[in-house]
Design a protein around this nucleic acid. Sequence first.
DNA 1: TGACGTCAAGATCCG
DNA 2: CGGATCTTGACGTCA
Length: 417
Amino acid sequence: MRIGYACLTVALEGAQIKTCMQINATPKRLLALAGENFAALERMIDYNIANQIPFYRISSDIVPFGSSLASSLPWDSAHKDRLTSVAQKIKSSGMRVSMHPGQYTVLNSQDADVVRRAIEDLSYHARFLDLLHLDATHKIILHVGGKYGEPALAMDRFAEVYRDLPETITKRLILENDGSIFHIDEVLELCHRIGAPAVYDNLHNAINPATETKSDADWIDLCGETWRERDGAQKTHYSQQHPTKTRGAHSDTIYIDPFLDYCHGLHTPAPDIMLEVKDKNRSAVKCVLCTTSPNQHLLETEWGRYKYSVLERSPSDYQAIREMLKDKQGDNAILFYQIVERALALPEDKGRAVNALEHVWGYCSDVATPAETKRYQTLRDDYLRGSAKLEQVKRLLYRLSLKYQQDYLLNSYYFTL
DNA sequence: TGACGTCAAGATCCG
DNA sequence: CGGATCTTGACGTCA
């Protein structure tokens, strides 16, 4: 079982995917943006390796307008060395990657031009993975599309278009149940018919359930029958419902207890799991550490990232975790994250927040200019009086951390939690 | 025609 | 001028 996350790496400097508006999209600008994004991709791959995250979805926006305006541009040869380096790192680390065109890539549309553009989009995704010399176990995930009032005809159209797709696409293409249109038993039927693997998404099945009621584990077993040797390990999507947002909205983080319950319910061998969650790599690190053998070093690195966010909410939990980590032999990852989740769920408390601010300010206080010191103190006092928000003070400290290259703080989650 | 989802870019406002 | 905040873009389907 490999656990991964999608597209963005949060709280990592130099890993931002950039784009531009269509109206400003000159060939020169698109090529330059692609190059910057490939550099960001390499940073994310490096991060994944360092943090033992073996599974990762590459953003479809890696080449801005890659399937349209940039499709005939030489973004591959222009940044050949960078792509070679990325490819080498993925291969030597044994990482599995995937790509996932969104809900707007519709192969079974009634509009021939929409279908044509969808094929262009899939060609672009296949081109990118091919350029990284990745084999057919590195997949492209797609939804089936629309039903147009005639589900059977819509599935027929999908099968027809699929039959004529080039092998560079079909060898990677896998189909996922979506949250409002095609549910998992329809996807399974179609997958058996066309000979493509099916991807089970637990939250989509919860909000757009199949006619039959089965457990997640049973649906995953049924999907497993569509996976062949050349496809590699079966992969699935996992996410949790956000407690207050609309149905189907992803949670801010993967809560560890329900995730472990889900994992324990799976039959062996457990499939690869792509997490779909707002806090991205943060949850991937959490879930990896809680499902693999003890790794005290990575857990202590995690503590460095979370500590000021915990201190900000709960000094007692901060102390509890410090005590816990003194036991170097303890396998404490699950307890660690349970405490972190509990602390982060607590409401904002001004006194505690200022305490954490002062700790973080301590990294810059000796080197900051008098004007910066004044600015910090004023903003901090404004926050205490209620005329400034905590985020504003944190943003100021973040900028100072950047200016004075406080790497320990820059790697922290404090500025984004 | 707006909602859906996503997140930067771009635009505008503010001190 | 920098920073904060609001709006737009880009995609297709469905209610």
